[in-house]
Simulated scan of single mutants.
Amino acid sequence: MIDETLLDAPDELARADPRGLLRAVAAAGAQVRTATRAAVESDLARLNPEGRPGTLLVAGTGPTAPLVADLLRALTDDGIPVHQLQPTGALAAPGALTWTLPRWVGPLDLLLAVSAEGTEPGLSMLLEAAYRRGCAAVTVTPPGSPLAETSAHRRNLTIPLATAPHAEPADHPAAPGPAWALVTPLLLLGERLGLFPAGTADADAVHAMADQLDAVAERCGPTTRTHDNPAKTLAAELDASLPLLWSEGPVAHAAARHAAATLAGLAGRPALTAELPMALAAHGALLNGSLVPGAGPEDFFRDRVDEPAPLHARVLLLRSPLPPGSDGNAASAAAAARDLAFEQGVTFRELESALDTGEETAPLRLAAELIAPLDFAAVYLSLTSGARA
């Protein structure tokens, strides 16, 4: 159980946050701007692509690689296959992990390697394997790191990792916020390679995403009280529950998967994801089972003295705003999800967006609007429950 009194006590929250998680997530917008400047000044600006790659392969440690793969997949809208390489190893530690290229990888494919430290031997070995296959590679990593040196030796494009100068790094491998410094250069790369519709991830779109991240940080920061703070409200609601993160639309799918990983890795809270309309079938049994309040004939008479609060399912829907003139299929799926949850007595909430639903929303602004509040919520859950994973 969380200590909800901490949510409206900024000084206490600061004392409970020796690892700097709140500073890290609040600095997401600054990370995007700093990474954009570094990418524009790097060799990326001089890249002259000859056609588009056949397949994008993404490799890296921590939560960044899945987020990169999911966002690229969302922005390309299945126009180019995006394949995340899963590491193997005896331990989930940077020095013990290895990555293997699929047998079909060749000169038409592009490997994207991301690392905040650049010290993983397995990633350097992966670059060597890609070189032998004739597969081009792009690396985002700190300058001077072993991974950067391997990339330069094989004449790959290396984009130096640049973090915001006043953003202190958080002492937690799952800390949200710093990941944006690794994600941003690859969004700009995708725009340069023509992987997305024109203007989706150019410098203006990326700066607009940074502005949106700042706006979310203002709404969700520790000094904003709970009744006006969507992230604190989410943290209180998600406590003692199993979140079912249902999503509609490619960007929302990416946000839901990232939220589940952050809740587990940072706050130690499990969450399940599913996409509409298949979520209705995939999680239907959960809505009928013991996770539903009042489930079981003996529940009413159960002795609750000194008994921990039971875990209940809670549906949180993430979805893209419907553009003007769109058909009603998406609205029908969301309505069906809402009706099913209400019929089963399961709490249902749609993550509210501050974006203008009267016009088509830029994908990167939407990504910031969906991802950042849940990042803040995971941080608040971690701090107020004493999680120190």
Score class of each variant (00 low, 15 high):
331 A>F: 10
81 P>E: 13
53 P>H: 07
153 H>D: 11
345 G>M: 05
194 G>V: 07
30 A>D: 15
1 M>N: 11
214 D>R: 01
236 A>R: 11
27 A>M: 06
95 G>M: 04
130 A>P: 01
245 L>Q: 05
297 P>R: 09
44 L>H: 10
274 A>V: 04
63 P>A: 13
273 T>S: 08
209 M>L: 12
337 A>R: 08
151 S>M: 05
114 V>F: 11
222 P>I: 09
66 P>A: 01
180 W>S: 05
253 H>C: 13
25 V>P: 00
248 E>S: 15
382 S>P: 06
84 Q>F: 02
96 A>K: 08
127 L>C: 10
320 S>V: 10
234 L>K: 00
27 A>Y: 05
35 A>M: 08
209 M>Q: 12
264 A>G: 13
179 A>P: 05
77 D>A: 15
134 G>P: 00
147 L>Y: 02
299 D>A: 15
230 P>H: 03
95 G>W: 10
303 D>N: 15
5 T>H: 10
16 A>S: 15
302 R>C: 08
215 A>E: 09
292 V>D: 02
223 T>W: 13
357 T>R: 14
339 D>C: 10
122 G>I: 01
162 A>Q: 11
235 A>M: 06
350 E>D: 14
155 R>V: 11
315 V>W: 03
301 F>T: 14
179 A>R: 12
156 N>K: 02
227 H>S: 14
315 V>K: 01
236 A>V: 05
210 A>L: 08
36 T>C: 15
186 L>A: 03
91 L>I: 13
360 E>Y: 07
63 P>C: 11
241 S>D: 06
248 E>R: 14
280 L>R: 14
138 V>M: 00
217 A>P: 00
351 L>V: 11
289 G>N: 10
250 P>F: 01
20 G>F: 04
268 G>I: 08
322 L>R: 14
300 F>W: 14
29 G>L: 02
360 E>L: 11
71 L>R: 03
262 T>D: 04
371 I>P: 00
213 L>N: 00
134 G>R: 06
340 L>K: 08
224 T>P: 06
293 P>W: 08
212 Q>D: 06
126 L>C: 05
64 T>P: 00
33 R>Y: 09
269 R>C: 11
47 L>G: 05
218 E>R: 14
365 R>L: 13
326 S>E: 12
111 L>S: 02
100 T>P: 04
180 W>N: 01
378 A>G: 12
192 R>E: 03
297 P>S: 09
249 G>S: 02
355 L>I: 04
195 L>M: 07
256 A>G: 09
117 E>L: 11
319 R>T: 12
114 V>L: 13
124 S>Q: 11
208 A>Q: 05
173 P>H: 12
331 A>N: 09
71 L>Q: 01
144 G>T: 06
23 R>L: 15
97 L>C: 02
93 A>E: 15
241 S>M: 08
248 E>V: 10
25 V>N: 04
18 P>Y: 07
287 L>S: 00
64 T>H: 02
219 R>K: 09
166 H>V: 12
124 S>Y: 03
348 F>L: 04
193 L>G: 07
204 D>E: 13
149 E>C: 13
387 A>N: 07
28 A>K: 00
221 G>P: 05
45 A>G: 09
360 E>R: 15
246 W>E: 00
353 S>H: 06
